[in-house]
Amino acid sequence: MGGFKMSLVVGEISYTNMLPLYYYLDRDHLNKLGCMFIPQVPSQLNAGMSKGIIDVGGISSFSYGEHVDKYTILPDLSVSSPQSVGSIFLFSKVPLTQLDGKKVALTSSSATSVNLLKIILQTFYGLNVEYEVMKPDFDEMLKDHDACLLIGDDAILTFWNLKEKIHRYDLGQMWYEHTKLPMTFAVLAVRNDILEKENHRIATLFDNFITSKKKCIENNYSEMISSIRQDFGGSKSFWENYFHGLNYDLSERHIEGLYHYYDLATDLSLLKKVNTISLWSALDRCHSI
């Protein structure tokens, strides 16, 4: 068997913004190959991957930055926003510029967005804020705090149900306004110790991710949106606009944006310096076929 793992554990970020990369996966075929899928929020997947429980899958870009020596990124795949992201919001009782010295509640489900908010408030606006990490619950978070950060489906549902006059800030938009670069919130990464042994299964999984992304874009996300609306509600036009505002590539501009994000995080001592982002090359797989 030569160290062949019985199963390859694949992390699946359980938010609609990640769905295009997973929607059309040939799960029957991948299950037969021994791929096992675990849907969780990003912070759980980040932890699972760092402990070696999860082998490959979607993680926060920040978590990749923390484990840059141990992980490799799969190319051409991400959850990014060229400008506004539409599901990562700071909800605030006061205008953003009045948050100096105030208390902000942070969602426990994320790493990239939490650190992005710190960069935006401290580096871009020069605000000093007191942070507390909490479970994502809008009402609880704003009981004793002046603002709260929510991401993913929690952010979308909160936005839909907002009654009182609350200021809402889109972190993707604010990042773009200050950097003119896309913001990459999640990447698909694989542990290096797995890559050495599992190149063939990783290659098959990678092809599936790329195919799923292409199919979703080709049919304008229509099938996927129908199933999201059954589970989740929302209008067809809301979801179309939402997915059109997102991007699933990993171009040179995306990488430039990631390096800039990592540098700013390093400046605030949130992260050690990231010198090199490693991308898996499809060419590496020749020997395994």
Rank of each mutant, 00 (worst) to 15 (best):
M1K: 03
F4H: 11
F4Y: 07
M6S: 05
M6K: 08
L8Q: 03
L8S: 02
I13T: 07
N17H: 06
M18L: 11
P20K: 06
Y22Q: 01
R27A: 05
H29F: 14
H29P: 00
K32F: 09
K32M: 09
M36H: 06
M36V: 04
M36W: 00
P39S: 11
S43P: 09
Q44C: 11
L45Y: 04
N46K: 04
A47M: 13
M49Y: 02
M49N: 00
S50H: 03
G52S: 08
I53K: 12
G57V: 09
G57S: 07
G58K: 01
G58Y: 07
I59Q: 11
S61Q: 07
Y64T: 03
H67S: 10
I73N: 02
L74E: 05
P75G: 10
D76I: 01
S81C: 14
S84V: 11
V85C: 10
V85R: 04
V85K: 08
G86K: 04
G86S: 10
F89T: 05
F89K: 02
L90H: 04
S92G: 00
S92I: 08
K93P: 01
L99N: 05
L99H: 07
L99M: 13
D100T: 08
G101T: 10
V104W: 12
L106Y: 08
S108L: 13
S113H: 15
F124Q: 00
L127H: 02
L127A: 03
Y131C: 03
Y131D: 02
M134A: 08
K135L: 14
P136E: 06
P136C: 03
F138I: 06
F138D: 02
L142Q: 06
L142C: 04
K143H: 04
D144C: 05
H145Y: 05
H145R: 04
L149G: 00
G152M: 03
G152T: 01
A155E: 00
F159S: 08
W160N: 05
W160M: 05
R168F: 10
R168A: 09
D170S: 00
G172C: 02
G172Q: 03
Q173C: 02
Y176T: 06
T179M: 07
K180E: 15
P182N: 04
F185S: 14
F185Y: 14
F185V: 06
V187C: 14
N192W: 11
N192A: 14
N192G: 12
I194P: 04
I194Y: 09
L195G: 01
E198Y: 07
E198Q: 12
N199L: 15
N208D: 15
I210M: 15
K214I: 07
K215N: 15
C216L: 09
N219F: 10
N220F: 09
S222N: 15
M224P: 04
R229W: 08
D231R: 13
G233Q: 09
G234E: 07
S235C: 06
Y242A: 05
G245P: 00
Y248R: 04
D249T: 06
D249Q: 11
S251F: 13
R253I: 03
R253W: 14
G257M: 00
G257I: 00
L258V: 06
H260F: 10
H260R: 11
D263L: 13
L264F: 05
L268C: 07
S269Q: 13
L271E: 09
L271T: 09
K272P: 08
K272M: 10
V274K: 06
N275V: 12
T276K: 14
S278R: 15
A282E: 15
L283G: 13
D284V: 11
C286K: 15
H287T: 12
S288M: 11
